[in-house]
Simulated scan of single mutants.
Amino acid sequence: MEQQSHYFFAVKLPEDIKQIMKSHMGTMKESIPFSRWVHYLDLHITLAFLGAATKEKLSNADNYVKQALEDVKAFTLNIDHLGFFGKEDSPRVFWAATMESLELNDIRNKVFSACEQAGFQLESRPFRPHITLARKWGRETPFHGGLLQVWEEIQSQPLSFQASEVVLYQTRVHQSPKYETLKIYPLQ
């Protein structure tokens, strides 16, 4: 049975930042054993997860997002901490996150609204921008935290980059990397 593709809009990380994060993830794998680590080429910050979609709805979303981002300028983001979602002793998602950014929140709101205008029903949870690094705690022994210390050991200062593209990705579950770029929306 073939699995249905899913689609989402995200801020693309530049290639040099993906390479640095690849190195950091290699270091962290030794002390933070999660079962599934994300391929470094799949690193991104999700703005709106669409799920499965028809060509027509995707086309509408493309048009509305293009309009919404017409005058948006590129901006700087700073990756500065690690965290997790799920239970404290066995987290389900391990992530890196950026310092608070009004520009990132603004872009997310524009993309989110454009997708709703295109007919998508999106998650109503608050926006928690993050870069998923790994999933599923990989040990029977409880997770013990210490993530700030791990980040400080591998990166003594925030990791800065220019957020200059929003991308529409398609998920290819049985491939690695598994996110395929369908459309790029360059920021000015």
Rank of each mutant, 00 (worst) to 15 (best):
Y179R: 06
T181D: 13
H144E: 14
S160I: 05
Q157D: 03
T132V: 07
R172L: 15
G146F: 01
Q170H: 08
G138V: 03
Q149R: 15
Q155T: 03
Y185D: 01
Y169A: 11
H130C: 11
A134R: 14
C115Y: 00
C115P: 00
F127D: 02
S113A: 15
Q157G: 04
R139C: 08
I184N: 10
P186Y: 05
G145S: 05
F161R: 04
H174E: 09
F143C: 11
R128A: 15
H174M: 11
L168A: 07
Q117T: 11
T181C: 15
P186Q: 09
S113V: 00
T132M: 13
L147T: 10
Q157S: 14
L148I: 07
T132Y: 08
P126C: 01
T132C: 12
Q149Y: 14
R125N: 06
P186D: 06
I131S: 07
Q170T: 01
F161A: 09
F161D: 01
V173K: 13
L147H: 05
V150P: 00
E180A: 12
Q121S: 10
Q175E: 10
A163E: 03
S113E: 05
I154V: 13
P142F: 03
E140D: 15
F161G: 07
L159A: 04
P158K: 04
F127P: 12
A163H: 05
A134K: 13
G145F: 09
E153I: 08
Q117H: 06
T171V: 06
F143T: 01
V166T: 02
T181F: 09
I154A: 02
I154C: 01
I154N: 00
H130W: 08
R125S: 11
T141D: 02
L133M: 14
